[in-house]
């Protein structure tokens, strides 16, 4: 490696390998010398290059933007979703967070709702199913009125944004001891439920999304691990918001005309 700021460290990687969803998995151990300037995923790139050179199949892992915004990446690093650095997706983690001689265990996100596809890649499509069940405002293209017709108090807009920052990576589910998806679901419910544009469908949306979530994921027992692991630091307050709205929705959605 040509001269850079970084120094080279030697790490021992314990990497999860699994040929397919139903195949048995296990750890493979590799020694890796790596510049501390490299990102964590560039370290895996180099491991794969080496494996390929040696005639072994590379480790499957997912990533795309490598800027922490698309939500494609995500692995368990030493038991933590996205690894040790706070507010940082796996792709933005750099090797300077590790020390020479470290042993690093790399596993896929572990959750019943996220079956392993291969090696470190998992299937997170249940998150799309939750959005499909109601995570939108029903407005056809062309039907919108002028954007400034409805003022939105700045505080509401800002809070809605805090929720909307969710990148859909699924770290919250992976970090949760119950594999619950409350933080993900509440981020969308909070985002839309806080805006005037989202009011018409607020109660039906909440009910549908929560109940779809429960088909795939476990229950929330307020550990708070989700928010701790979230690369966008989405607040637990949104779960409280969602729970409150779900309760109200159950009352409001009763099929008595006078209750609506």
């Amino acid at each position: 490696m040509s001269g850079s700021n970084g120094t080279t460290i030697n790490v021992t990687l314990k990497v999860w390998r699994q040929a397919g969803p139903d195949a048995p998995g296990g750890f493979e151990v590799h020694q890796q010398a790596i510049s501390t300037d490299a990102s964590f995923l560039e370290m895996l790139d180099q491991l794969n290059e080496q494996l390929n050179d040696d005639g072994n199949e590379p480790v499957a892992f997912e990533s795309d933007c490598r800027e922490g915004i698309c939500g494609t990446c995500g692995v368990m690093i030493n038991g933590r979703a996205h690894g040790p650095q706070k507010a940082t997706a796996t792709c933005q983690l750099h090797m300077r967070e590790f020390r020479d001689g470290d042993e690093i265990t790399i596993e896929p996100f572990r959750a019943a709702g996220f079956p392993v596809v291969r090696d470190l890649a998992v299937d997170r499509s249940p998150l799309d199913a939750i959005i499909e069940s109601g995570g939108y405002i029903s407005v056809n293209a062309g039907a919108a009125s002028d954007a400034n017709l409805t003022p939105v108090p700045k505080a509401a807009a800002d809070t809605a944004f805090d929720a909307a920052a969710c990148i859909g990576c699924g770290a919250c589910v992976a970090a949760c001891p119950n594999s619950a998806a409350q933080l993900f679901t509440s981020a969308k419910i909070g985002h839309l439920g806080l805006l005037p544009q989202g009011q018409a469908e607020r109660w039906s949306r909440t009910e549908a999304m929560v109940e779809t979530m429960e088909e795939f994921f476990g229950s929330c027992t307020n550990h708070g691990e989700c928010s701790e692991a979230c690369p966008k630091e989405i607040s637990l307050d949104f779960i409280a918001f969602m729970n409150r709205d779900y309760l109200k929705a159950k009352v409001k959605n009763r099929s008595l005309a006078g209750q609506r």
Partner: peptide, 22 residues
């Protein structure tokens, strides 16, 4: 101009000033 209207109606949280306008 229609894009901004459409996105706002969908709930895109564009930056707003203190009067609540974009």
């Amino acid at each position: 101009v229609n894009i901004i209207d459409q996105a706002t109606a969908q709930g895109v949280p564009f930056a707003r000033d203190y009067g609540g306008l974009l």
